[in-house]
């Protein structure tokens, strides 16, 4: 339907929310509008001359649109824009700021797996994968995207309540010489120096060292 007269207020707070480069466009409804507002979305690669419509986000009533596929090349930067429609009226387009997937994404904590012996615990960390189009698609670890990626690991002795920190570049850590029959809780965080990015700390994974057989 032709757009009659664009007097509708614009959508508000149009921005990308990105985690592991899964890039979702979010916005809020125009001021003072209730239900029934529909939206359409377009995006552009910064420096390239044309806006591209996103058909799957045409005449939608939700206030988000997954543009991960369209913004998956993290050597590019992007803009996206949203227009609202209600009762034959429309709004002007409302744009995001320039989106740089490499620096503007958030990173999930690493996956942590822990095993133990009588006197040691072994920790294996796995960095999250970059978003991919389909589960069959090629997996790209964020380690490949951010070569300077490091891990901060926290080890808590549940008996003494003492917490130690380790900073490691590779993804495995063995903590020897521990007390048998004691519970230790491990959590880990990803740390990239440039661009400066931190994940949060993962939840704690607790494991007990085996009991001392000789005791």
């Amino acid at each position: 339907s032709g757009e009659l007269y664009c007097s509708l207020p614009k959508p508000r707070n149009v921005h990308f929310e990105s985690i592991n480069m899964k890039n979702i466009l979010h916005w809020s409804a125009p001021e003072g509008t209730g239900d029934g507002v529909l939206y359409k979305v377009k995006y552009s690669v910064y420096g390239v001359g044309k806006w591209i419509r996103k058909p799957e986000c045409r005449n939608i009533n939700r206030t988000w649109c997954d543009l991960s596929s369209e913004t998956s090349d993290y050597e590019e930067q992007y803009y996206a824009s949203v227009k609202a429609f209600l009762n034959g009226m429309c709004s002007d387009w409302m744009e995001t700021t320039r989106f740089n997937p490499l620096t503007d994404t958030k990173i999930d904590p690493p996956m942590v797996s822990v095993s133990s012996t009588e006197k040691s615990i072994s920790i294996i960390l796995t960095a999250p994968e970059k978003w991919k189009r389909s589960s069959e698609g090629e997996s790209v670890s964020l380690l490949q995207v951010y070569p300077g990626l490091q891990y901060n690991v926290s080890v808590l002795n549940k008996k003494t309540k003492k917490r130690w920190f380790f900073s490691i570049s590779n993804n495995t850590l063995v903590v020897p010489w521990l007390e048998p029959g004691t519970a230790y809780c491990v959590s880990a965080q990803i740390h990239v120096t440039t661009p400066l990015l931190h994940s949060g700390f993962s939840k704690e994974y607790c494991i007990a060292t085996l009991k001392d057989k000789t005791a």
Partner: peptide, 14 residues
């Protein structure tokens, strides 16, 4: 080399 100071840092076992 310690790049980030976050409370108690593990150096080694003795």
């Amino acid at each position: 080399v310690v790049k980030e100071v976050s409370s108690v840092i593990h150096l080694d076992t003795m």
